[in-house]
């Protein structure tokens, strides 16, 4: 058991290091960080201008802080899903090494999780910078005390587990699709952007969509992060839940997501091998 855990750990670290090298070693760290920061920052600028144009209020208005935090944090979902979605296409069709990963005693789940961790670390810089820009440039007032840090950390870690699980599942889907499936990750991220209340409260959506939102881990993840950073509930239909209840719901929705995604990975891997898609080329 210990031997197996040790092997898994080594595989995870190695694939993480590989992911980091593929992601970042084409540039010096400063240039690489600029690339990581610019996209989320401009995403935030778009929201700031939209809010200002419509309401005439400055970005420091409390109503906007919730939107800003949700958008900044959600960048992790977008970037990790997008990054993991492309891993399979790159490994399969560009580097032509997917077959060797299949042959190695690593396991796709561990390999993809490691690659996703590298992407998570790279994206975190952009998220942190965007959150800080909210405070320094737009005057958004955060209220994160020392007492909130354990809650914030627990929510953050659970959210990252859910994001990685979903990223692995999308990479698994990529194993059995052509390069046209390239847009799937960003599209799925858009679905969650819509249903988890990243930039507007899900209560304005039709009832059936709200119900879906209530079983997604990202809804509780964003709510927990907002509560720890701003100390006010955002989604009206969750306002009756205490902070602990939000964390509990985040935990079980994450657990269910991990189980479903792992099952999807096993099924996709089996189908890709049995139908000869593991090594297909679809770039045109």
């Amino acid at each position: 058991m210990i031997n197996r855990l040790s092997t898994t750990y080594r595989s995870l670290v190695t694939s993480g290091r590989l992911g980091w090298a593929v992601e970042s070693n084409w540039a010096d760290p400063f240039v690489f960080m600029i690339y990581q920061i610019v996209r989320p920052l401009f995403g935030a600028f778009i929201l700031v201008v939209m809010f200002k144009v419509v309401t005439g209020q400055p970005a420091s208005a409390p109503a906007f802080a919730q939107v800003y935090v949700g958008n900044a944090m959600f960048m992790l979902v977008v970037q990790v899903l997008f990054g993991l979605g492309i891993v399979i296409f790159e490994d399969r069709e560009r580097f032509e090494m997917l077959r060797y990963i299949y042959l190695a005693p690593v396991g796709f789940g561990v390999y993809l999780t490691g690659r996703g961790l590298a992407k998570t670390i790279a994206t975190t810089a952009g998220v942190v910078f965007t959150i800080l820009a909210g405070w320094l440039i737009f005057g958004i007032k955060y209220d994160l005390g020392f007492g909130d840090i354990p809650y914030f950390t627990a929510a953050m870690l659970l959210g990252i587990v859910a994001i990685l699980a979903l990223g692995v599942a999308l990479a698994a889907v990529a194993m059995v699709t052509s390069r046209e499936g390239f847009g799937l990750s960003e599209g799925v991220a858009s679905v969650f952007y819509l249903l988890s209340g990243a930039v507007f409260t899900i209560d304005i959506l039709p009832r059936w969509m709200v119900s879906i939102g209530h079983v997604l881990p990202f809804t509780y993840w964003l709510e927990a992060l907002r509560r720890s950073l701003l100390h006010t509930p955002y989604i009206g239909s969750l306002s009756h839940l205490s902070d602990a209840q939000i964390l509990l719901r985040l935990s079980w929705t994450t657990a269910v997501t991990v189980i479903i995604c792992w099952a999807l990975l096993s099924a996709a891997e089996h189908y890709a091998v049995s139908s000869g898609k593991l090594d297909q080329r679809t770039d045109h």
């Binding site: 929201l47 939209m50 809010f51 419509v54 309401t55 939107v67 699709t177 052509s178 046209e180 499936g181 390239f182 847009g183 799937l184 960003e186 599209g187 799925v188 858009s190 679905v191 952007y193 819509l194 990243a198 930039v199 507007f200 409260t201 304005i204 959506l205």
Partner: peptide, 24 residues
């Protein structure tokens, strides 16, 4: 399948921005 990946899914991103405006 590109029709699904490139039409249905990006459409949702536009919906989000439209809903932000509706919300405001």
């Amino acid at each position: 399948s590109w029709l699904f990946f490139e039409v249905a899914l990006p459409l949702l991103a536009s919906f989000s921005f439209a809903l932000i405006y509706r919300g405001m």
